[in-house]
Design a protein around this nucleic acid. Structure first.
Length: 558
RNA sequence: UGAGCUAUGGUGUAAUGGCAACACUACAGAUUCUGGUUCUGUCAUUCUAGGUUCGAGUCCUGGUAGCUCAACCA
């Protein structure tokens, strides 16, 4: 029997879950969602949120989620994008019930347009693009009616057929819904349903030279698929009345649209158009450049699907505008990687240390734990010799008060190996430190020391003669401003690009990292999480920094 | 300026008329062969002015602020 203390407090519902539960309470027996990307670019973290919502809701309520490509504008779309989108959704861990394209419905959509013409609810307009724009009015001034608005049904039918048959040039005519040129909602001022585009479509080829607009195609596509909950972002809320208008006018299955606030992240650009520009202008290596917010970039950078899903869960779903701290995304990867990533040692900014009382011909191996949180991960052997690299940050000639790493006369623990003491600092003519001479305590190899003394500092190291040199790519935010669109007078968002977003250096890795392959992920102890890049080869290894470790020492010294 | 949407800590999300909760961040401390992890603690009179009510973050009215809409894009 459940008693009060064993009761688990139920997690509260988000507003979409509430809507669904209400509809179920009212007798709805089905939950059918859809994820409807336009194949005109790569999916980004904002789409990941939408994917998690749509597939997550379907899963939670025993329903299904379709994948539907919204491919109504052939001039911007391409199969390259279709393939990447499918791959990214699968990588995130979701699978769709059915795969469809808005273009699958072009015939049906055309027939329905004819229905609307016959009902006197649509007409062919011969005005130019300019004239149509002027006729629409403004937010505070009513529009004016097109001189072609009152054509007969027969003439409209004839003209629309001829539009379809390719008799007219691009832009010569459009099909418009006949609604209300004075409507306060601009979208109701006789919205365009079809435009002429003599462009080859990536799926329908040259079959069509007229293509439906989003507002006409989307709700009808939802209706055809009997979508119960059509979920989209907030900027589409003004489209909802029109979405409903077409469905009611056509008397077809009533899908309903619900809107949530899109994801924004500090220091991150989410606009597909602008991301495309970065790719085209080669400001980044490509859509999967690890500095991009795209899903393929996150994958390449070393993010796990679970961490992206956890992030989507963490940011929640609501209708108010938001800007999420980039730190939250980093928290999510660290949390996942801390659990699963094997530890290794690597020195990114080397300082040579000679251990003067250690046999110069000797190499011995120390056992190092692969993952302190996972005993099953086991351990590995790490070679040690007389000359090693340590991080330059781990030595300070004149240490500040709370510094407990290496300094002249001071002793530190080499992780998994000996205690060493700095005896001499060697400098070049410029005064730059070139190497350190240290002595070691031969009895300290097992974690103890010769006389029971304990040291606070533990630093990582790599044996110079065994080290594996590798290119290390350090990534920083792509933009210098929290909001990349926050621009000074006379500047553009591109002026906010961070010149230090990519720093490439040579690091020295422990030899066990040889042969690491794409998909593996490691923690370089005390430094961060790293993974082999897709550019990596056995001869020239390349590692990406996924995210740094939390560093409270660095923060203290800011 | 017409219409629509939204206002709760630094950030995000809860609280469904009854003690403002959870997570991230920040700060303080404990543990630690990673200045990591883990653990403990600290951080709000809910945009504003009125009203309804025994009782309002929640309901009502006015104001203010932010976002969205005037592509033959989605």
């Amino acid at each position: 029997m459940a008693n009060e203390t064993s009761e688990i407090k139920e997690k509260s519902l988000n507003f979409l879950e509430e809507i669904i539960e209400e509809s179920i309470a009212k007798g709805e027996t089905r939950v059918q969602t859809r994820f409807p990307p336009e194949p005109n670019g790569y999916l980004h973290i904002g789409h990941a949120k939408s994917i998690c919502i749509n597939f997550g809701l379907a899963k939670k309520y025993g329903g299904k989620c379709n994948l539907r490509f919204d491919d109504t504008n052939p001039v911007k779309e391409d199969v390259e994008y279709v393939d990447s989108i499918k791959r990214d959704i699968k990588w995130l861990g979701f699978d769709w019930a059915i795969e469809r394209y808005a273009s699958d419905y072009f015939d049906q959509l055309y027939d329905w347009a004819v229905v609307l013409i016959n009902k006197g609810l649509a007409y062919v307009d011969d005005q130019t693009q300019e004239q149509i724009r002027e006729g629409r009015g403004t937010v505070s001034v009513a529009g004016t009616m097109s001189p072609f608005r009152n054509r007969s049904i027969e003439e409209n039918l004839d003209l629309f057929t001829r539009m379809k048959n390719g008799e007219f040039a691009d832009g010569a005519r459009v099909l418009r819904a006949k609604i209300d040129m004075a409507h306060p909602n601009m979208l109701f001022r006789d919205p365009i349903m079809y435009r002429i585009l003599h462009t080859e479509h990536h799926r329908t080829g040259n079959k069509w030279c007229i293509y439906p607009m989003y507002d006409y195609a989307h709700g009808e596509s939802d209706s055809i698929e009997k979508i119960t909950h059509s979920i989209c972002t907030l900027e589409f809320d003004v489209h909802r009345p029109l979405y409903d208008w077409f469905i009611e006018a056509l008397e077809i299955f009533p899908s309903h649209q619900y809107e949530f606030a899109r994801l924004n992240i500090t220091y991150t650009m989410m606009s597909k158009r602008k991301l495309l520009k970065l790719v085209q202008e080669k400001a980044v290596m490509g859509w999967d450049d690890p500095r991009m917010p795209t899903i393929c970039a996150l994958r390449r950078k070393g993010y796990t699907p679970a961490s992206v899903r956890a992030f989507a869960e963490m940011v929640g779903v609501a209708k108010r505008d938001n800007i999420i701290d980039l730190g939250k995304l980093e928290y999510c990867v660290r949390e996942d990687l801390n659990r699963i990533a094997e530890r290794r040692m690597a020195v990114l900014n080397p300082l040579k240390v000679v251990i003067t009382n250690y046999d110069e011909h000797k190499t011995e191996c120390f056992s190092a734990i692969n993952n302190p949180g996972d005993e099953a991960a086991g351990s590995r052997q790490v070679p040690f010799s007389q000359v090693i690299y340590i991080e330059r940050d781990d030595f300070m000639e004149e240490p500040s008060k709370k510094y407990f790493r290496l300094s002249p006369g001071n002793e530190v623990r080499l992780r998994y190996a000996y205690l060493i003491k700095c005896e001499e600092v060697v400098k070049d003519a410029d005064g730059t430190i070139t190497e350190l001479h240290c002595t070691y305590d031969p009895l300290s190899g097992n974690g103890s020391s010769s006389d029971g003394r304990r040291v606070k500092g533990v630093i990582h190291w790599v044996s110079v003669k065994d080290a594996l040199p590798a290119e290390i790519r350090l990534f920083n935010p792509l933009f210098t401003k929290e909001n990349p669109d926050d621009v000074e007078e006379g500047q553009t968002w591109e002026d906010n690009l961070n010149p230090e977003s990519l720093i490439s250096i040579t690091g020295y890795l422990e030899p066990s990292l040889k042969g690491a392959t794409v998909g593996q992920t490691f923690q370089f102890e005390r430094v961060g999480y790293f993974c082999p890049d897709t550019d990596s080869t056995p001869e020239q290894p390349v590692f990406n920094r996924t995210v740094t470790l939390k560093d409270s020492w660095a923060k203290m010294n800011k």
